[in-house]
């Protein structure tokens, strides 16, 4: 089929995994490549539909911004929110060092 997408390379898969923040081990890249290629091959049928001049529809309801009344309310207790955290220091979430930015 002429509208088949360009083949997905292992490098593409590695790039998408990085964007998705998923550590995909080397040995699983090929299986992701195979599955994604098959799905994209099927999805290619979208290219055969004429969509000229159509406004994208992001949502089924035509709702505009809905404003709520401005009423002060109490928030959830910090202890309840921290109960699920994997690592806590005092009233804070503990994370590895952030300065230096994300590595690639």
């Amino acid at each position: 089929m002429s509208d088949q997408p360009a083949p997905l390379t292992i490098e593409d898969v590695r790039h998408v995994a990085k964007l998705a923040r998923l550590a995909v081990p080397q040995e699983r890249l090929a299986s992701f490549q195979h599955d994604l290629q098959a799905i994209l091959g099927h999805i290619a049928q979208l290219q055969s539909v004429n969509t000229d001049g159509l406004e994208p529809m992001a949502h089924p309801l035509t709702l505009t911004n809905r404003l709520g009344d401005d009423i002060p309310q109490s928030s959830m207790p910090i202890a309840d929110l921290l109960r699920n955290a994997p690592a806590v220091e005092g009233d804070f979430l503990a994370v590895p060092k952030v300065l230096g930015g994300e590595s690639s």
Partner: peptide, 18 residues
């Protein structure tokens, strides 16, 4: 970070790895 599984792997040195 806030909830759910966090890796115990020592190899996760920075935020991205985590």
């Amino acid at each position: 970070i806030r909830y759910g599984h966090r890796t115990k792997s020592k190899a996760a040195k920075d935020l991205f790895d985590l």
